[in-house]
């Protein structure tokens, strides 16, 4: 297989993962699942970076991936913390009920 075909496949995989993640964010009401879906989306983006980096033979893609991983870790930490607090306060982590911010 040529490089071009590999990179095409990698991008298609990333796109599929991203869409799966997005669908998860849209359809799940449980905040924990939403966070998991977000993580899938982040990793899809990371995959795209890796693939692009290897295709052009440059380190930038890997550096960006490291940043994405760090970001994902931080996000999960903060997100789970907030989820815990929300659950203590409202006794629920259903995001459709957590709509106090409406205008």
């Amino acid at each position: 297989m040529t490089d071009a075909v590999i990179i095409d496949h990698a991008f298609i995989l990333a796109a599929i993962l991203f869409c799966l993640g997005l669908t998860g964010v849209l359809v799940r009401r449980n905040l924990v699942f939403v966070l998991i879906s977000l993580e899938v989306m982040l990793n899809a983006a990371g995959l795209a970076f890796i693939a692009a980096g290897s295709a052009w033979g440059q380190a930038d893609g890997q550096i960006m991936f490291l940043a994405v991983v760090t970001l994902g870790a931080a996000e999960v930490a903060v997100g789970l913390g907030l989820t815990l607090l929300l659950f203590r306060r409202f006794n629920s982590i259903d995001i459709d009920q957590l709509n106090k911010l409406k205008g």
């Binding site: 997005l22 964010v25 849209l26 359809v27 009401r29 939403v34 995001i95 459709d96 957590l98 709509n99 106090k100 911010l101 409406k102 205008g103």
Partner: peptide
């Protein structure tokens, strides 16, 4: 202001 309904999923959907 009807768009500002507090539904996280609605926001995400419109963003997407």
């Amino acid at each position: 202001s009807r768009g500002q309904n507090g539904q996280l999923r609605f926001y995400v959907a419109t963003m997407a």
